[in-house]
Design a protein around this nucleic acid. Structure first.
Lengths: 211, 211
DNA sequence: AGAGATTTGTGATTTTTTTCACGAAGTAGG
DNA sequence: CCTACTTCGTGAAAAAAATCACAAATCTCT
């Protein structure tokens, strides 16, 4: 049975989690895994695991569980893990430069190909394997149509401008660390990572718990 | 008209966003704001804005909108913004040290009070205003009962251990950057920031779009 | 091969979240 | 004060997500 139905957003956002735990099991020499076990590893219920996995075919075996290798391959396939994705990063400040140095991306098939900043002090610096260029040269990325993903780590005032610029040059996925809602064209996906937001959520929890 | 009903999770996660945009409007000298306008700023529909705000009282004015100052104060109150929250950070690697240097937290009332690492090369170093201590001294935080929030930026293998340790010493909110699901006691809240996860989500989108 | 245990796959149900749509309240201008 | 216009607040409806619960498939053990 092929892709039976369209995979819901909620399920899609968990694929990565499943793959991570499945890969871990494989590394440990595992062979099969049950929905209960996978649920424990991912913090989900067994029913949810089964329902999620059922969206992309039926390949579990009653009585024994899911074959790890098979499941891994399906997840890798869905997530396009055989591709290598090229990324442009704009803003080589604290967070930006940390991401440039972060080795975890490369292992996962994500390569930061270009980095830009507006600050003369940062331009020319090399983090990890990338040299920071002047943001005025950002249209360089237009030549390299393999770059579809941008990471934006610029101050809040320039984030919208940067988003508009990179989408003009072929970017269709943006990981935005700037605390602002980016307005982008249809067809462009934005995911926000807002650290203050996360902390304020704690603040809310801590505050309401006290009351 | 007090807290009418319990605020749903989905709404709680947006409070921070509302406050941010409201504060921005206030800085620009705004006075009133309509649900339509606030919807545009937050990327939500006007209906959702009204519904959300209705969870914590009715203070809009038909025909003219919401009073910015009033709304701001309510949101600040809900989010406990008059408090200052103390944080402990464990793992002063790429991301960890970037967070230590990041000035944005302090402005928002979040202060990283202590930082720990296991690596002798990092211990003793000072980032921002915090000096990294030896993780073996982590029980120091038990003395300072004002620290309720931990940021975990350690490698995946040690994350669970660290989580267990800090919760033993009074932490009840954990911001986890490590790509692993932390098992914590009831009453402890974990929020995960998983960068590879976010990128893989893009990978999924890009892959399925191609098909 | 048969009995009992395990585990999947999935309709049905429940819960949560979002959207709709409209009455009521308020504004503005003459 | 009246008319036309805006905008809120919210029940009701719809959509999305999670949970339940159980028949059917498979496994294990003797």
């Amino acid at each position: 049975m092929q892709e039976k139905k369209k995979i819901p957003k909620s399920v899609a956002s968990r694929l990565s989690l499943y793959l991570r735990e499945i890969s871990r099991l494989e590394d440990e020499g595992g062979d099969k895994v049950s929905s209960v076990e996978l649920g424990e590893l991912t913090g989900l219920t067994d029913a949810q695991v089964r329902k999620d996995l059922s969206y992309f075919g039926q390949f579990g075996t009653s009585g024994s569980g899911y074959e790890i290798l098979k499941l891994k391959n399906i997840l890798r396939d869905l997530l396009g893990k055989d591709n290598i994705w090229h990324i442009v990063l704009i803003g080589a400040g604290n967070i930006g430069s940390a991401l440039l140095r972060y080795p975890g991306f490369k292992n996962q098939g994500f390569i930061i190909k270009e980095a830009f900043d507006i600050d003369q002090k940062k331009i020319g610096k090399c983090y990890g394997e990338v040299t920071v260029k002047d943001v005025r040269q950002i249209n360089d990325i237009e030549k390299d149509r393999s770059i579809k993903i941008a990471i934006i780590t610029v101050p809040v005032d320039s984030a919208q401008d940067v988003a508009e610029e990179v989408t003009r040059y072929g970017i269709i996925c943006i990981l935005n660390f700037s605390p602002v809602i980016l307005k982008v064209d249809e067809g462009v996906t934005v995911r926000n990572i807002d650290l203050s937001n996360e902390l304020e959520n704690f603040s809310f929890i801590l505050t309401s718990a006290k009351g």
